[in-house]
């Protein structure tokens, strides 16, 4: 190589020595952070000790649990297969407890109403406005 060409090469690589790391670092900094999972409801609570009743089907097991003095009830819904309804809400009598979705364990704690220690559990399709299932303990 001739001298001007050698000088040009050195100038180009000196420039690249600055530009390349700057470009890589910039690209790294603007990498979008992965979306965090936002829970629609709090993490599943621990099951309450006293089992008041249980309703078993191949696709799910529903249990009504309580603390020792029955001042707090808990609905435990173990879904073994996903529901066919896209959006199913679960009620304890008139009170909305939460939503049942894909397979998993769902536990909803609630206070018993004065009139009924074992409320009727209703699974309701909010889109089609139909009752999917009623469970009595």
């Amino acid at each position: 190589m001739i001298k001007p060409l050698r000088r040009r090469h050195l100038q180009i690589w000196s420039l690249l020595a600055v530009l390349l790391p700057a470009a890589i670092l910039t690209g790294w900094l603007v990498v979008p952070q992965p979306a965090t999972d936002l829970l629609l409801q709090p993490e599943t609570a621990a099951p309450l000790p006293l089992l008041l009743g249980q309703n078993d089907k191949p696709e799910r097991t529903v249990s009504l649990r309580a603390v020792a003095d029955s001042s707090m009830l808990q609905l435990e819904w173990v879904a073994r297969s996903p529901l066919t309804a896209p959006s199913a809400l679960v009620y304890a009598g008139p009170a909305l407890l939460g939503r049942i979705g894909p397979r998993g364990n769902y536990r909803f704690s609630f206070r018993p109403s004065p009139g009924s220690r074992r409320p009727q559990i209703i699974l309701y399709d909010i889109i089609h406005h139909t009752v999917i299932e009623k469970i009595n303990f």
Binding site: R6, H9, L10, W13, S14, L16, A17, L20
Partner: peptide
């Protein structure tokens, strides 16, 4: 970059 600068 290291190789080219070193050689240069």
């Amino acid at each position: 970059v290291t190789l080219h600068i070193l050689t240069g």
